[in-house]
Design a protein around this nucleic acid. Structure first.
Lengths: 181, 181
DNA sequence: GATGACATGTAATGAGTTACATGATTGC
DNA sequence: GCAATCATGTAACTCATTACATGTCATC
């Protein structure tokens, strides 16, 4: 499971409550590893019994108390151990690919609409990543060690969205201009 | 859930036993939607009670009997219905991205090894897809309707592997030649 | 006699989603 | 008064993986 490790990375960067983590997962990290707040609370509880994180209740005024989690020594050890183990192979899992393959048995015009929507989503995320890159890493040739990982992850997102857009364009060309061939 | 629909597509192309489906998922379709034989048998059973598929036991000589599943009228209807509904947004889920982000807290040289292994896997899959494309679709400008979906899926695989390789190359350049900057 | 392909499953566990539950404060 | 944000959870359920279970036949 990598959710635990995603949380460890996030807490290693900065301590946070479950609620804070859920928001981070909605924003930056979550583009590469989704998690709901329910799941985060559950995993945090297990991680605390494992000794990877420690919590401290922080009273706030005008707002509910919050439980701030910090990574422990054991958590840092686990994170280091995890990075030195090979990542298991990741397989694509694309409902969209299955749907393309269903073309001869389905509604081609609805699928075309779907491709268009998908392309828009790719374009949006690409813009978000490029904006993020420009704001957080204005000088990519001159990155500190602590920034390198975040930059490379964003680059991966950018390359992946560009590939996604190129794919949609190929599909649309095939599905919307059959008369030209 | 799309496993049901992946199975429906596969059965729409050709009737098969659970065992046959498991092998297809290991080969072609499985590059975009993995499934184990255990899961396939379970889902097939549910799909049969739902009336989407019907099975017939076929005795064989020299081999165990097999249960051959065929898609039903209701299954085809469901497949058509599914293609006309929009595909829910797909989010990346990359343990590898999390690991990159863990760079400042982990073992950089082990991560470099991991990137190299990952690059090799991408190169291998790319070769597989290109070979598949050349063998099954030798004339891509002149595809029958029934072939188009399969071809487009392969193109998606090819574009995605190429993007993966480009990403690995960027990462390796950053992590192995820092002295040049 | 061992290994591997063929063939179909069950059981236990873990991962993840959806729905539900509660309660304070801030701004419209 | 109502919705939104802050804050933390539980319960039920579905999805997926891992381990286990059984048995035939063909080939080395």
């Amino acid at each position: 499971m990598a959710l635990e490790h995603a949380i460890l990375v996030s807490l290693a960067e900065r301590s946070a409550s479950g609620y804070d983590l859920a928001r981070r997962f909605d924003a930056s990290i979550g583009h590469f590893w989704r998690a709901s707040h329910q799941q985060i609370y559950k995993v945090l509880a297990r991680m605390e019994t494992d000794g990877w994180v420690a919590s401290q209740v922080v009273p706030q005024d005008g707002r509910p108390d919050k439980k701030v989690y910090a990574i422990t020594r054991a958590g840092r050890d686990e994170l280091a151990r995890w990075t030195s183990a090979p990542t298991p192979a990741e397989h694509l899992r694309s409902e969209f690919a299955v749907k393309l393959r269903a073309l001869p048995f389905g509604d081609a015009s609805a699928i075309v609409d779907d491709v268009r929507a998908r392309r828009r989503a790719h374009v949006e995320r690409l813009a978000y990543y490029e904006d993020s890159a420009a704001r957080h890493y204005p000088r990519p040739d001159d990155l500190a060690d602590a920034e390198l990982g975040g930059w490379l992850v964003l680059r991966g997102g950018i390359l992946s969205e560009q590939a996604g857009i190129a794919w949609c364009d190929e599909i649309l060309q095939r599905l919307t201009e059959p008369a030209d061939r």
